[in-house]
Amino acid sequence: MPEKVNLEFKKPRSLRNVSTHYCPGCGHGIVHRLVTEIVDELEIREKTVAIAPVGCSVIAYDYWDFDVSEAAHGRALAVATAMKRCRPNLVVFTYQGDGDLASIGIAETLYAANRGENLTCIFINNACYGMTGGQMAPTTLIGQKTTTTPWGRDPAKGDGFPLKVSELIANLPGVCYVERVSVSNPQNVIKTKKAIKQAFLNQLEDKGFSLVEILSQCPVIWRMTPQEAVKWVESEMIKTFPLGRIK
C-alpha cells in the first residue's frame, strides 16, 4: 500500500492567523511557515521556546504561537544557551539574520557553536541589513550596492569579504550539522524544510549545535521585483554561498 499523502492545505497550529509586516516577496514568511510546520509535525509546540533577533523578524512572536523571548542585537545564542541549559527539556531555537548572527553577534555565534550547545539555529542570509534600510551586511556580495557601499562592496577599499559563517563554524567540533539552503523555488523550499527538520531532530537527540543557513530574497532592499530577486539568489548569491550540506 502506498503511503497516504495528506493533501489538505491548512495553516500550521503554531502559526498565528494574522498577516505579517514583511515586504512583498520576502523570504521570512516562507521560513516562518516551515518552522511552524516542523514544530507541529514533531509535536513540540508546548515545549518550544524561540529566541527572536533584532532585525526584520524582531516581532516573530506576533506570528508564532509558542513561547518566544527577545534578545539584544546579536545575543540570541547567549540567551538561548542559558535557556536550554536551565531547562534542557525545552526545544530552543534562535532565528537570526546575517547582521545579527554574523556581525554584531559573531562572538556569541562562534562560542555557542564551539561549546556545542544543544541548540537549533535558523540563520537567514539576505546579503544586507533589511530593517535599517539596506546597509552592507557581513554577507553582502562583492560588488553589491548598498546604502553604505554606494559603489558596490569592494574588498580593496576595506569593505572586507563576504563572511561564510557556515563554513567557519563547520570546523568546530561542537557543531553537529550545518547546511545551506534557499527558499528561491519550490524544490529548494522542500529542501529547506528537510534541513530545518534535521536541525530540530538533532536537538531532540542531544547531538549538539545545528545551523541552517537560508539564502532569502529581499526584493525591496535589492530594488528588484520578487521574480528578479529569486533569480538573483540563484544566479548570484549561490556563487558566493553554494547550497548543500557543509557538515
Binding site: 547567549a78 540567551v79 544557551t81 542559558a82 536551565c86 562572538a107 562560542y111
Partner: peptide
C-alpha cells in the same frame, strides 16, 4: 545549577537574561 564562563561580559549578561526569562 548552571555555571558558564562566558566568552565576554556582554554574553554573560545576556545569558543571565535567558536564564531569568526561563524563570531561574
Amino acid at each position: 545549577g548552571v555555571f558558564i564562563q562566558a566568552e565576554s561580559e556582554i554574553a554573560a549578561v545576556n545569558m543571565v537574561f535567558g536564564a531569568s526569562a526561563a524563570g531561574f
